[in-house]
Nucleic acid binder design. Structure first.
Length: 868
DNA sequence: ATGAACTTCTTTTTT
DNA sequence: AGAAGTTCAT
């Protein structure tokens, strides 16, 4: 089973690849000295300390290309690990572009988890699993733990499954199997934690299932206990590359160290200053300790920043300087000039959102002085790039944005520099129309602007405000598609059809939609199954057959079971030997013809016949239409896969889905979600002590927590390319309660000479929210010391605009504009529609796409007033 | 078995 | 404030 010959990934490595002559390496000329150093130092342990925006991915991908080009390794002998699928995808793409061909031959470029799944499927028997084990999601894990807690007769108030899961996760992150958990730790949880952990693991084995933590944990166990297996991989993977090394936990660290143990050709890339996942087990220590772990390690620092202006960089550097434990790096840039970091205080969170909304409108419309000054900063480079592309004829005859993007994807340097869809589009159009390129630059585009918050509850204020003014936005990183309830339900049906012994899936959907099967009926099923030693589906069948579940519930259950068998049969098609048309529902292994339905049709049939579709059609809550949409989308997604099995396997590992359409939008996301991204204009709201740095971080992790928060601040500032605006509010509603707070201590750490303090509108402007930045800046010049501001803010005086009822009225008068029956209106979420009823501030609207809904009127805009 | 009323709890999130 | 979970009455 574990022989390399049988593994696809090890096949097809033709000798010619190895014998390939060493070719010239033109790509090396594209690198700066530090990057080049990092790329050319191929052998032995290398630590690449890559600051924000220093071309880390470029160095990493070039290194891979160089390994291949110098014939040090064949594509399938390089192990490169990332944390996210997105990062893995991006690397594959870029390596492919460097090599001038798709990098499909890189089977070991992937996330820790996807690589571990591949390995574990081959060696599952070594940890008492079958190679077709299933991977549980958090929902399944919780359900399992709840059962265990109940079975053990433990007070689930004192031991909520959530908390247990946290404890267990923590142990798994530290590569601790139940027998290895230190006594002190085990004791700390009253011995209950460790007992349940052991039971949980046993149960997982019985279910032939693993959770995400297990993927790493099992592989570490296998490597530690089977020297032969380890050695095979040690010699197979000739070179190892690791992205975001500062985010590795102990299990991942051990896994890497074991694999690199032989040749020690390991290159870890990371930035200790961007370690922000300590709370979920990441160990900054891993990167800080690298030189100890790998004696003789070569350390390269990438410190030239290609992203941000000097002021922004200086602000970031000064903040991060406050941290004790760091390897030390000083970012610098060849860029000159640029905007100072803006700082502004507000009276409350709503005022803050309102102000930022206005700023964005000004940036987008070109009314802001910043937008006007933009011409002089980066535009020259980009224009010459566009001209160059134009000379190449690359932009000729392109008539849609998609075509332009497609074309431009091939021009790496341009994308790295610009990277903004709208901007490129606009430039191209201007170029084609023979208009001046300069004129394209005063404005910012919505997709060049991001709002980065510390906690997701901060997002609501922005969503509210942006809906009111009709500013298109998207929230990045919310609950993902595959995590939505309806999708998980549907997936559970699919899982159950594909593998009838998937008990967790059965539990999820027995009574969804409602079949009249409550606790009691479900217990009966559990009992029957256990007594007969069969799966829950089988147990349910026996229970029904023996009349243990009667009445409406029994009938519905029978229908479900029959349905499952029928659908299961449909995955195969008719049995070949049988000449009549009788339905095969015994699931016995036979020879089968081609399925009568495609897997896409089958999926639709399952959802319809199970009553799940109807369940949402009958649901009158406002979310129901959206959920039905999602289900449709799910079925559409199936098109990309051969069959249901393939789809399920994919989804368990790749939970991301980034489909945004409908034009450019402002991005709203958490600071965590923003890591690795960059935007020309960034807003950083909510810099108040307690919110940021978060009180909880400091309470739980003390100085360590504070330092992680500070790194988060650093990450936030370094996302900005041209404009970085930090703000705070004196008052904020927290959990429904008004609270006042002081500006963040990080604000004190911003260097005065790189910061411009703005005056909030209304303080001098007599309630007119129209003052431009110029005016505010002029007024604020006298008070441009952050420390001074903070002190003033402490006294609750200066720094915030005052609450002004009058102005609220002014603003809201436009927002709560009255609508008339029949009027055409626009809603950010539901689209266009017509007013069919009015009750106070609620308006009933018949939407073209989303059906009839009652909406608060401020979420509506007259169709003709849609500003974007 | 189910829905309505009541209580509790609230960061950050990938795989 | 609002979601999610719990209890209680039908």
């Amino acid at each position: 089973m574990s022989s390399f010959d049988e593994m696809d990934a090890f096949e097809g490595a033709s000798l010619s690849a190895r014998a390939m002559a060493v070719r010239p390496s033109p790509y090396l000329d594209e690198l700066n000295p530090a990057q080049r150093d990092a790329v050319e130092r191929l052998d032995g342990p290398v630590l690449m300390l890559a600051g924000a925006g220093t071309g880390k991915t470029k160095a990493l991908t070039t290194r891979i290309a160089h390994l291949l080009n110098t014939a040090r390794a064949r594509p399938n002998e390089i192990l490169s690990v990332t944390f996210t699928n997105k990062a893995a995808r991006e690397m594959k793409e870029r390596v492919g572009r460097l090599l001038g061909q798709p990098a499909e031959g890189m089977p070991w470029l992937g996330t820790f988890h996807s690589i571990c799944v591949k390995l574990l499927r081959r060696h599952a028997e070594l940890v008492d699993l079958k190679s077709n084990f299933t991977i549980l999601d958090t929902d399944d894990q919780l359900r399992l733990l709840k059962q265990l807690v109940q079975a053990a007769n433990i007070d689930d108030k004192r031991w909520p499954a959530r908390m247990l899961l946290g404890v267990i996760d923590d142990w798994k992150n530290r590569a601790l199997t139940p027998d290895k958990v230190p006594a002190a730790d085990a004791g700390a949880y009253d011995n209950k934690g460790i007992e349940l952990y052991a039971q949980y693991q046993t149960r997982l084995r019985e279910l032939n299932a693993v959770d995400f933590g297990d993927l790493l944990l099992h592989m570490v166990t296998i490597f530690q206990t089977h020297q032969d297996v380890l050695e095979q991989y040690q010699s197979w993977f000739r070179y190892i590359l690791v992205d975001e090394y500062q985010d590795t936990n102990i299990a991942q660290y051990l896994w890497l160290r074991l694999l690199a143990g032989g040749h020690k050709n390991i290159c870890c890339v990371g930035d200790d200053d961007q370690s922000i996942y300590g709370w979920r087990g990441a160990e900054v220590g891993n990167i800080l300790r690298f030189e100890k772990d790998f004696p003789g390690a070569y350390v390269v620092r990438l410190e030239q920043n290609y992203r941000s202006t000097p002021h922004i960089l200086a602000a970031a550097s000064n903040v991060i300087r406050g941290n004790e434990s760091r390897l030390g790096k000083e970012l610098w840039t060849a860029a000159e000039n640029g905007e100072k970091v803006c700082l502004i205080g507000h009276w409350d969170g709503e005022e803050e959102a309102r102000w930022i909304g206005e700023q964005i409108e000004d940036l987008v419309n070109g009314n802001s002085p910043i937008a006007k000054r933009r011409q002089n900063s980066r535009s020259d480079q980009m224009m010459s790039e566009v001209e160059r592309l134009d000379e190449l004829g690359a932009l000729k005859g392109l008539n849609s944005r998609e075509q332009v993007l497609e074309k431009l994807k091939k021009h790496e340097s341009f994308l790295a520099e610009a990277g903004r869809e709208s901007l490129i589009w606009e430039l191209t159009m201007r170029q084609q129309e023979g208009r001046s390129l300069e004129a394209a630059f005063p404005r910012f585009y919505l997709d060049e602007i991001a709002i980065l918050v510390r906690a997701s509850h901060q997002m609501r204020a922005f969503e509210d405000r942006f809906l009111t003014i009709g500013l298109p936005y998207k929230v990045i990183g919310g609950p993902r598609f595959y995590e939505r309830m309806e999708i998980r339900d549907a997936m559970a049906y699919f899982r159950l059809v594909v593998s009838p012994e998937d008990d967790l899936a059965f539990e999820r959907i027995v009574n969804t939609p409602k079949r009249g099967l409550g606790d009691k009926a479900q217990q009966t099923i559990q009992m029957t199954a256990r007594e007969n030693g069969v799966s829950l589906v089988e147990g349910a069948r026996i229970a029904v057959d023996n009349g243990l579940i009667k009445g409406k519930g029994g009938a519905a259950l029978r229908e479900l079971i029959d349905g499952l068998a029928r659908w299961n049969a449909m995955t195969r098609g008719p049995r070949i030997e049988v000449d009549d048309d009788s339905v095969i529902d015994d699931g016995s292994p036979m020879r089968f013809g081609a399925p009568e339905h495609t897997h896409i049709e089958l999926a639709q049939i399952i959802l319809d016949e199970s009553g799940y579709t109807a369940h949402w059609q009958n649901d009158k809550t406002p979310e129901a239409p959206g959920r039905l949409e999602n289900l449709k989308e799910l079925v559409n997604q199936l098109d990309n896969f051969e069959n249901l099995q393939g789809f399920l396997e994919h989804v368990s590992l790749v939970m991301d889905n980034e489909q945004d359409s409908g034009g450019p939008k402002v991005s709203i996301m958490t600071l965590h979600a923003a890591k690795g991204l960059e935007f020309p204009a960034v807003f950083l709201p909510g810099w108040e002590d307690g919110l940021f740095p978060s009180q909880r971080s400091m309470d739980e992790s003390g100085l360590k927590g504070l330092e992680e928060e500070r790194r988060l601040a650093y990450v936030g500032i370094t996302r900005a390319e041209e404009v970085c605006t930090i703000s705070f509010a004196a008052n904020r509603r927290v959990f429904g309660q008004w609270q006042n707070s002081m500006p963040s201590r990080f604000i004190d750490e911003l260097p005065e000479e790189h910061v411009e303090v703005l005056t909030p509108p209304g303080l001098y402007g007599g309630g007119q929210p129209t003052a431009g930045i110029e005016t505010r800046a002029a007024e604020a010049n006298v008070y441009n010391s952050p420390g001074w501001r903070r002190m003033q803010a402490r006294q609750g005086q200066y720094g915030m605009s005052q609450p002004r009822e009058s102005r609220n009225t002014v603003i809201d008068a436009t927002a709560v504009a009255s609508f008339t029956l029949g009027e055409r209106v626009f809603h950010q979420k539901f689209g266009y529609g017509a007013v069919v009823g009015i009750e106070g501030d609620k308006v009933e609207v018949e939407f073209d796409k989303a059906g009839t809904k009652k909406v608060v009127s401020r979420f509506l805009t007259n169709k003709d007033d849609v500003p974007f």
